[in-house]
Design a protein around this nucleic acid. Structure first.
Lengths: 209, 209
DNA sequence: TTCCAACTGTAGTGACCGATACAGCAACGG
DNA sequence: CCGTTGCTGTATCGGTCACTACAGTTGGAA
C-alpha cells in the first residue's frame, strides 16, 4: 500500500482559514449561531470546501475546540523547575494560567459556552471540553497533593474543584467586562486565597488570622 | 379615559406557559437555539399567541431573563437581622446565595449563556443581565465595606469582584457536573476564603497563617 | 343584545439553515 | 501524456427560521 499522498499546499492553509473563521463566529454567536454560510463568508471559501475538510457542523465545532485547546496549552508555559517555596509555586502557576487565558482565550470561552448548553443530542465539542477539563482538574489535584502532602484526599478534591471553578468565573468576568477586570490581579488574589485555605485545611486548629 | 381593560384570565396564564417553555428551551439550547416553533410546541400555544404576548424573539428572551431574576431574588432570603459576628454573617450570606442558586438557577444560567456571547447586535436580555449583575456586585461591595470598615476602596472592589466572579464559576461547575459538585460546600469554602482574605487585606503585616 | 378588546387558529411569507450533487481545476506520480 | 487525487465553484435540495396576515372565538362592559 502506498504512503498517504502528499496533500497540496493550500489544503492545510484552507483548513486553517476555515477554523480561524469558525472560532471567531462561534465565539460571537455560540454553537447554534455558527452557520456554515457565515463561516464560508468570513473565510472566503465555499461551503463545499468546509464540507470537504469537515464531516458536518458538529465535526467542525469539535475541531475548533481541539485546536483551541492545543493553542491554549502551548500558550501556558508551566514552570517546570521546582523552584521557590510552595506558596511561590502556586502563585507562579496562577500567573501562568492567567497569562495563557489572556493570550489564548478561545478554548475556555467556547468550551464554557458549550458546557452551559444541555441540548438533547450533545455536541461532540462539549464532551471533548468536559473531558479535557476533568483531566485538568485532576492535574491540579495532583499538584496540590505534591505541594501540601499533609492534606487529606477530601480537602485536596475540594480545593482543586474550587480552584478551577473559580478560575472559570474570573475568566468569564474578564471576557464579559474586558476593560474593568484585571485578570492577572484576580488570579494573584486567587492563588493567595487558595494557599491560605490549604494551610488552614492542613491544620484546622490554626487560629483565624 | 377609562381604566385599562381587565385582561382575560387565561391571558396571564398563557403568558406564564410561554415563559415556562421558553426558559426550558433557552436553558437547553441558548439564544439562537430557542426557536419560536419549539417554544410553541412545548407550551401548546400557537406562534401567533407568542407574538401577541411578546413583540419578537428578543423581547421574549428578555422577559424570560427578567422573570427568572425576580424568581431568583425571592428564592434568596438574605438574613435581614444583623446577627452574629462578621464572619458568621458572611457565611450566612454565602449559604443563602448558594441555596437560591440551587432552587432558582435559571437567571444565572441563562444570563451567563447570554453574557458569553458577543453578537454584533446585542440581545436585550444580555444587557439586562449585565446591568443587574453590576448592581449585585456593588451591593456586595457595600456590604463588604460595612462589615470591614478598615478596608480601603481598592481592596473592597477587588474582593467584591472576586466574590461574584468566583461564585459564577462555582455555579457553572454545579450546573455542568450536577452530581459530583456540592455547591453548598463550595460556597462555605468560598465564604471562608473571602473572609480570611479580607482580614489579611485590612492588615497586610499580619503573618501568614 | 351589541360591541369591542383579548386572545387563538390557520396558513402562509421570504430568508436562511445544514447538507449534497457534481462538474471543473490544479498538481502530482506514472 | 494520462489518470488519480486534492480541493474549489455552482447550484440546489428539503426543512426550518422569525415573523405576519387575517379570520375566528370568547367574554365582559355598555
Amino acid at each position: 500500500m502506498g504512503e498517504p499522498r502528499k496533500q497540496r499546499a493550500n489544503g492545510i492553509e484552507s483548513r486553517r482559514r476555515i477554523l480561524d473563521a469558525a472560532v471567531e463566529i462561534a465565539g460571537e454567536r455560540g454553537y447554534e449561531g455558527t452557520s456554515i454560510a457565515a463561516v464560508s463568508a468570513r473565510c472566503g471559501l465555499p461551503a463545499s470546501s468546509i464540507y470537504w475538510h469537515f464531516k458536518d457542523k458538529d465535526d467542525l465545532i469539535a475541531a475548533v475546540i481541539e485546536r483551541s485547546f492545543d493553542a491554549w496549552l502551548s500558550a501556558m508555559d508551566l514552570p517546570g523547575e521546582h523552584s521557590g517555596t510552595p506558596r511561590e509555586r502556586v502563585e507562579q502557576m496562577a500567573a501562568s494560567v492567567a497569562k495563557s487565558l489572556v493570550d489564548a482565550p478561545d478554548f475556555l470561552r467556547l468550551g464554557l459556552m458549550l458546557a452551559l448548553e444541555r441540548r438533547p443530542e450533545e455536541p461532540r465539542g462539549r464532551t471533548v471540553f468536559l473531558q479535557v477539563r476533568q483531566v485538568a482538574r485532576r492535574r491540579v489535584a495532583e499538584i496540590t497533593a505534591a505541594l501540601l502532602p499533609d492534606l487529606d484526599d477530601a480537602s485536596i478534591d475540594l480545593l482543586a474543584t474550587y480552584a478551577v471553578a473559580a478560575a472559570d468565573g474570573l475568566f468569564i468576568a474578564h471576557q464579559t467586562d474586558h476593560d474593568a477586570i484585571d485578570l492577572i490581579g484576580l488570579f494573584e488574589l486567587h492563588a493567595r486565597l487558595l494557599f491560605d485555605a490549604a494551610l488552614r485545611l492542613t491544620d484546622p486548629e490554626r487560629p483565624h488570622p
